[in-house]
Amino acid sequence: MTIPANVAAFIAAQRKVLDELEKFVETPEYRRLLAAAGPMLVAEDPQPWLAQWLIEPCHGFDGLHMDLAMQPGGVERVEQYLKWMSTFVVS
């Protein structure tokens, strides 16, 4: 069976996102975001959650959370958002 072109395009796009995530996880910016996410996920390892969240669409931004974090000043914005989210989860 041949993979339909639209499915092959989807798979290729997902591979590209995961390749970008793999590179991003090795950066100091990722470690900063991990530190910001950690308090709201005290009972579990925050890394799988953060990895998944980073490749989800970012509301109010045309792209993924990871895309925003890679923009100039973006890591600060994403870090602040994670800290804001943690105040509701930890409280």
Results as ranks from 00 to 15, higher is better:
residue 29 E to T: 09
residue 19 D to H: 11
residue 48 P to R: 09
residue 20 E to D: 15
residue 57 P to N: 11
residue 85 M to V: 11
residue 10 F to V: 08
residue 17 V to C: 00
residue 27 T to P: 02
residue 41 L to R: 14
residue 88 F to C: 01
residue 16 K to Q: 13
residue 7 V to Y: 05
residue 16 K to M: 02
residue 85 M to H: 09
residue 34 L to S: 08
residue 76 E to T: 14
residue 78 V to N: 03
residue 59 H to N: 10
residue 73 G to C: 08
residue 32 R to K: 08
residue 10 F to R: 14
residue 72 P to L: 09
residue 76 E to Y: 01
residue 87 T to V: 10
residue 50 L to I: 07
residue 31 R to H: 10
residue 50 L to Y: 04
residue 58 C to R: 11
residue 47 Q to T: 15
residue 11 I to S: 04
residue 19 D to S: 12
residue 12 A to K: 12
residue 4 P to E: 13
residue 1 M to A: 12
residue 20 E to M: 04
residue 83 K to I: 06
residue 42 V to D: 07
residue 23 K to C: 00
residue 25 V to P: 01
residue 62 D to S: 14
residue 48 P to Q: 05
residue 10 F to D: 07
residue 75 V to P: 01
residue 34 L to F: 04
residue 30 Y to Q: 09
residue 47 Q to P: 01
residue 41 L to P: 00
residue 46 P to H: 04
residue 61 F to L: 04
residue 17 V to A: 04
residue 5 A to Y: 01
residue 41 L to W: 05
residue 15 R to H: 06
residue 79 E to A: 13
residue 52 Q to V: 05
residue 58 C to G: 05
residue 70 M to P: 01
residue 46 P to C: 14
residue 54 L to W: 03
residue 73 G to Y: 07
residue 27 T to G: 07
residue 69 A to H: 03
residue 27 T to K: 08
residue 64 L to S: 12
residue 7 V to K: 11
residue 83 K to H: 09
residue 13 A to P: 00
residue 66 M to R: 12
residue 75 V to I: 11
residue 33 L to F: 06
residue 44 E to R: 15
residue 51 A to M: 10
residue 40 M to P: 02
residue 35 A to P: 01
residue 61 F to D: 01
residue 77 R to W: 00
residue 2 T to Q: 09
residue 33 L to Q: 05
residue 54 L to Y: 03
residue 33 L to A: 09
residue 55 I to F: 01
residue 65 H to Y: 13
residue 74 G to D: 06
residue 18 L to S: 09
residue 1 M to C: 07
residue 8 A to M: 03
residue 51 A to P: 01
residue 33 L to E: 06
residue 4 P to S: 14
residue 53 W to S: 06
residue 28 P to N: 13
residue 67 D to K: 08
residue 18 L to D: 13
residue 91 S to I: 00
residue 67 D to H: 13
residue 86 S to R: 11
residue 58 C to A: 14
